[in-house]
Design a protein around this nucleic acid. Structure first.
Lengths: 195, 195, 195, 195
DNA sequence: CATGAATGAGCCTTCATTCAT
DNA sequence: CATGAATGAAGGCTCATTCAT
């Protein structure tokens, strides 16, 4: 009874794995099922098409990043330190899963029915919104910050920079570090954090 | 001099058009050549493969966005107004070409040899960097801003938010406006603009 | 005694139904079992393969047509009237079950081992043969008619015309009626019926 | 310039050949193209799908049968002899191409858009109609025969009996001959031929 | 007897690319 | 330079059948 949806999870994990290695175009369903240890036809019992795994992958990705962030952020640290921790967590995650992330963007825009993206991110937005609300209550950030909207901005911002660095640029470690610092400074000013 | 590379341009424009309408996966070379009004084989006289149009498209896209920005930004306006103008231009452009942009990301990451993205954006980064340097010289933004790096951050940021709104969210006009205002406020604080 | 072979009958009836609606190619075993309200595997407890339902269907079809004919034909009517009744019955039946009939032909010729067609029609041939013998004894049809053979001719003939009208032609009601009259006249002359 | 549509004809001929040998289900497009000596993809330049060859085959079949009939019938012979010749031609043809004929029925009813059957047969109907009109003018058949309609009846009748013998029954040569004679007698009476 | 999840061989079709004209 | 008919490798998907429960 333990492995309800066992196969579905296996497929998703295998898909993430293969996509990371081969890219979306070059990944065959046969690759996925081979790694998942199931038959070709079984795939289609759980997903109607190759691309339809994408939303499921996205969901898993969001869960992963939230775990990452939760683990990294020290609740007792200062807002400034916490901000750095958030950036670190997102950067680490983006670096680890850069290919998959690119795939999700491609896959989601490729497949038709998918404006699910927003829904998928909801949990992360909520978390970030709570983080900002809290900081605002404590007077650690400027009062004009609107948590709901700012949370979306922040996530979009940090991820975009991380992707710029890890997906599109080929940047030295040194430069990577400098960019990250510039980003954090940007965010501190944007949020009106007083150090 | 007029129709030097006439066919090549036709192909690029046709490709942009078809990609906008059908997405990268579903676009066939035959669609492109049909719209370009040339023969199937002719395509391969100008581009070695389907994906190799991507960098060319990207280049055109960057040209387009810079024209857009240059047209929008009033050199005599205040920095704050100019910032809004930049955001407006990028938003308008992203809305118009959202599919193509997604395709470029996907296409560039799909194609193997291409980390050209950076190179392609160089002109835009330079422009933005100049913009920031200038503002810094005039003391309109905080002195700690590092123009080279900040320009990348800003472009990534504004584009990411625009994409979030136009690609992934299905957002009301009202909410779109509010998000844009929040973004501008964010940027003003980030850059330390004094109003 | 009531639901002996209950499931088998359910399968056959469901198969007829689905075949009528979807055609032989597009009918999946899963469609049949769904309509029959049984599990996929159960199908194979009663039939060794998909095509092997065909003879069973054919048998049911023949039973149906004989019921139709028996109900229609008035034993006390004149031979001429009876002939019309036979034609009417076969026409009605063909119209109702045209798709299934086409399927039976296709199915029987598709499946390898089956020249069972003849056997299946035997009962109908016998009935018609008896009908002709009887008429011959009573001197209502020409004496040279050979009942055994003529019965096959008649059935083939009437069915063929009905199929021509209902399967292949898209014919007006008026024309349908005229064709039927021409057919009956044909048969009357062929059998040498004196009116 | 001679081989315009060369490939299309090759495909049709190959399809007829392979269908005759393997049946419709078991025929792969790859079998057809192999025999036609062309590439797999080329098939789809001429036909949109596997089943769409069917109408083309049907057309060829009708042409073939008309050639057969025209060759067999002696214009100067008596109507009775000519009738026998028509039956012989159709029987011979049906025997030769029984599998293909069965396939056409199956194929036409399988594919959707096809009530083309009637159109395809038009030429044959016309020929037979002319044959009957002529005989009627010469007073060789009963005056009440309506050539247009009777031509359809006759073709349906003769073909149906031939198919019954060659497709569905497994009949001895002797019985085959007897059935044919019974059929001719049937037709003679039906048409009111005076010998 | 009944189930239905799992299987996997197999085929149709697509489409980027080539090359003879 | 231009053409577009021809190519054929490649892979997504189906579905009849099986078998452990």
């Amino acid at each position: 009874m333990v492995d309800i949806n066992n196969k579905e999870e296996k497929i998703i994990e295998a898909a993430i794995q293969v996509f990371k290695e081969k890219g979306i175009e070059k990944t065959k369903v046969s690759d996925i099922v081979k790694l998942a240890g199931i038959a070709q036809g079984t795939f289609y019992l759980y997903f109607p098409s190759k691309l339809s795994v994408m939303p499921a992958i996205a969901e898993v990705m969001v869960k992963k990043i939230m775990i990452e962030v939760n683990n990294e952020v020290d609740e007792n640290a200062s807002i400034s330190v916490q901000l750095t921790q958030i950036v670190n967590a997102i950067f680490r995650f983006t670096k680890e899963y850069r290919e998959v992330l690119a795939l999700i963007y491609a896959g989601l825009s490729t497949d038709d029915n998918l404006k699910k993206w927003e829904t998928i991110y909801d949990a992360f937005y909520s978390w970030m919104s709570g983080f900002l609300s809290n900081a605002k209550l404590k007077g650690e950030i400027r009062n004009s910050v609107q948590p709901e909207r700012a949370s979306k901005l922040m996530i979009a911002f940090i991820e975009a920079v991380a992707e710029q660095i890890y997906l599109y640029d080929a940047v030295s470690n040194e430069e990577e570090k400098m960019q990250k610092l510039e980003l954090i400074m940007f965010l501190e000013h944007a949020l009106g954090i007083q150090k």
